[in-house]
Amino acid sequence: MSDIQELKDFATQVRRDILRQVHKVNSGHPGGSLGCTEFFTALYKEVMHHNTSFDMDGKEEDLFFLSNGHISPVFYSVLARTGYFPVDELNTFRLIDSRLQGHPTTHEGLPGIRVASGSLGQGMSVAIGAAEAKKLNKDKHLVYSLHGDGELQEGQNWEAIMYAAANKIDNLIATVDLNGQQIDGSTETVLPMGNLKKKFEAFGWDVLEIEDGNDMEQVIDGLKEAKTHTGKGKPVCILMTTVMGNGVDFMMHTHAWHGKAPNDEQLEKALAQNPETLGDY
């Protein structure tokens, strides 16, 4: 059990890592990454039972699948800072010959990544397959996944959502990052998806909500609560409301920073709002 302040400090450092990664190569996706910083911190530091000595099969440990692969900066930072690979390697994000590809892949053998993602809508199916394998292997550990809200516009998700309920995939906790933004604008203007809670429930899922996905205590409590809902015959969904760009005032509440890097001046301003805690890479 980590101290809450320790987790918050960790998250602050992760924010710095996100900003510095995308700034260096002037590309990448800071908005969604910043919004999910608490989620990744809570999951990898506090909730999941996982081995940083990476094994692809991941037997007898919890697994995580990132479906919205474009928020790779937060994933890479948290994997590095929890011990999957050297923190210095964050310097290579999106550079030629790097294991830290623009979107996460297994192809370069980066520890912690179990499937490529980036082309949206595929992660839930993969997570379900891994959850089915755990059941076959009599492995009681859980499978976690994260999905963007805009990503739910991809039809494959609804195939997976239907399958998971029908087949009682109750060792899966799928979290949806409700930041209300996508590339072309808000989800409400691009393609409103209606009441997602009712939709998941209508498909037969057990749905929980985290009202403030940028509040570390709420995220931890929400994830731990979700764990108590597993093993009861239903897949578990967490609808987690976050603010895109959280932690950097000028990046918040807008889709403008979905896939845009800060310039030198903006980086300085953003980093000043997130002082170094664990040491920059």
Partner: peptide, 23 residues
């Protein structure tokens, strides 16, 4: 055996996931 219904995209994804765990 996993009957996925008329949902081939989901089938391919589930198949990929099943390999994680040695299937």
């Amino acid at each position: 055996f996993f009957q996925v219904g008329i949902a081939e995209a989901n089938m391919i994804g589930i198949a990929a996931g099943l390999t994680i765990g040695g299937k």
